[in-house]
Design a protein around this nucleic acid. Structure first.
Length: 287
DNA sequence: AAGAGGCCCTGATAGC
DNA sequence: TGCTATCAGGGCCTCT
């Protein structure tokens, strides 16, 4: 599920539930996620009071009062489920619903608060948890990352300079977290559609004007997605509550062979695999 | 050294 | 209680 907008939605709703709560008990059922969960993980979390839930790129950052904490990544299939003992309901990062049904398989990490249970579920196990002792240790994790699209340092000049003389295609740059942090496959496709640039264009082939469009639409598409509650695709058919709504606004993603949504455009959305990821684009209005 | 491709893993779906 | 192939919102590692 998670690109930057989805992770931000999770962050907002998770923080409301766990802020100022004290961790009573931690149970790791399976340490073998993307990276093996540190053997000190349980002790590190024990009795800590949560000050804040932060986010960088697609990473959630749970901060304790003593400036230590842990990083969480949801990978491709990670979901968070919170069981509220008072309200007897469950919040997940994919939807809100009242049925007290929790997934049965793949519940790898359980964090117990007073009257609240946090469950991390991840079938594919591409997600991970990583503890940090202080701010410096936290920052180290992101030292190789490029700016987020909203950051001031993600500027037209930065993009122009970065893409100069580069052979790699622009789609891969948008997915490259060293270039820009937080964009994944859905939004890369949508940003390129809005910018009217074909995904296979080489970095060095982009004009200054096109670089400015990349800048503008990176911000715009992600902002709009956050406002819409992110994108919910697949696996939500059994739930009734709030889902993300941005999937209704996809212009190209998963729209293979459909007509371009742009008025008067005669184009058709094509699908092409670029670096093992599906790329969708209009064969007419994207140049 | 930049860039392409393989791979980690499970589950849903389409096609046979 | 069919089987098999393909694909999925990520990103690290290896090879050239």
């Amino acid at each position: 599920m998670p690109e930057l907008p989805e992770v931000e939605i999770v962050r907002q709703s998770l923080e409301k539930k766990v802020k100022d709560k004290i961790i009573e008990k931690v149970l790791v059922k399976n340490r073998n996620l993307r990276f093996k969960i540190n053997s000190k993980f349980e002790n590190h979390l024990q009795k800590k009071k949560i000050k804040k839930v932060d986010r960088f790129s697609k990473y959630l950052i749970v901060l304790f009062e003593d400036t230590s904490g842990f990083i969480m990544h949801l990978g491709m299939s990670g979901t968070i489920h919170l069981y509220d003992y008072n309200k007897k309901n469950i919040f997940t990062n994919t939807s809100f619903y009242n049925s007290p049904i929790l997934p049965k398989k793949h519940n790898h990490v359980i964090i117990q608060f007073n009257k609240l249970k946090f469950i991390y579920n991840d079938p594919r196990r591409f997600g991970f948890f990583k503890i940090f002792k202080n701010k410096i240790e936290l920052k180290k994790n992101f030292s190789n990352f490029g700016p987020e699209p909203f950051s001031k340092s993600f500027s037209a000049n930065y993009i122009i300079k970065y893409l100069k003389n580069k052979e790699k295609n622009i789609k891969n740059f948008l997915l490259d977290q060293k270039f820009v942090s937080g964009i994944g496959n859905i939004y890369a496709n949508e940003i390129l559609y809005n910018s009217k640039i074909k995904p296979n264009r080489k970095g060095k082939s982009l004009t200054k004007d096109e670089c400015k469009k990349i800048l503008l639409f990176s911000k715009l598409v992600l902002t709009k997605a956050i406002k819409k509650g992110g994108s919910s695709i697949r696996d939500f058919k059994n739930t009734n509550g709030d889902m993300g709504k941005f999937q209704k606004e996809f212009n190209v993603y998963q729209r293979e062979n459909l007509n371009c949504v742009k008025a008067k455009c005669k184009g058709v959305i094509k699908k092409k695999i670029i670096s093992n990821r599906s790329s969708f684009f209009c064969n007419y209005c994207q140049k």
